[in-house]
């Protein structure tokens, strides 16, 4: 399994000889989803902490539901994103006359989630460290909640977490290049372009968002 990180070209070349199997990729995506769920749980915990005692008593019982719901939602969202990313890459590779099934593409994209699991763990650790040390403000209106969360997200620790997430996304994209090369029988150039388009869009959007947050502080 470690070979997917050290020599992805050879790894996917050998995987192509085997039957399409989504169990391992799904497990990897599950791990990635769990890290996302942990971060979502911490973020929800932060929101509840900001709202403080302003919530009505009848809403207090829903706090735990909201916390678990956000974690599970993030987990499910990871699988949805897996499908969406695979579909986008499958679609773009079709422009380069790519061959191969969507299932194979989905499988190889799933293997590419391994760096995202590592990045997710680091981001979750940083988020936990940040939320455990920061003194959360309390607000009284929804507008102030948005301002408070925006201010928290603009903190250097959270920005570092986002940057690290982007670095591991680039690593994952690198794996997707070799995965698509074999799954869709593309040249390395076409595979690189196929992956670079959506990843570049996402990275640019993330950088713009970080810059916007920094400027609002």
């Amino acid at each position: 399994m470690i070979e997917v990180l050290t020599n992805p070209d050879k790894f996917f070349e050998e995987r192509l000889k085997r039957e399409e199997n989504l169990k391992t990729p799904a497990f990897i995506v599950l791990l990635s989803g769990m890290t996302s769920g942990a971060i979502a749980f911490l973020s929800s915990l932060m929101t509840v902490g900001i709202l403080g005692g302003t919530l009505p008593p009848e809403a207090q019982g829903f706090i735990s539901v909201m916390l678990v719901g956000s974690a599970v939602g993030a987990l499910v969202f990871a699988f949805i994103i897996w499908l969406v990313v695979a579909a986008i890459l499958f679609g773009i590779s079709a422009l380069f006359n790519g061959e191969g099934s969507f299932k194979r593409t989905l499988e190889f994209v799933g293997y590419g989630y391994i760096p995202l699991v590592i990045g997710g763990i680091i981001s979750a650790a940083l988020t936990y460290h940040f939320f455990s040390t920061v003194e959360l403000p309390t607000v009284t209106s929804p507008e102030e909640v948005a301002d408070a969360i925006a201010a928290l997200m603009a903190s250097p620790m959270m920005q570092l977490s986002s940057v690290i997430g982007m670095l591991f996304l680039l690593w994952a994209a690198n794996l997707w290049v070799f995965g698509l090369k074999h799954a869709r029988k593309l040249s390395i150039r076409d595979a690189l372009i196929t992956v670079a388009i959506p990843v570049a869009v996402y990275v640019l959007y993330s950088v713009w968002k970080l810059a916007t947050l920094s400027s609002t502080l």
């Binding site: 990180l5 570092l160 591991f168 690198n174 070799f178």
Partner: peptide, 20 residues
Amino acid sequence: VLVAVASVVAGAIAYSWKRK
């Protein structure tokens, strides 16, 4: 931390292309 992570990721990507 940022430099370390960036180095690891860059190294991994470079290594994977070297072994291609």
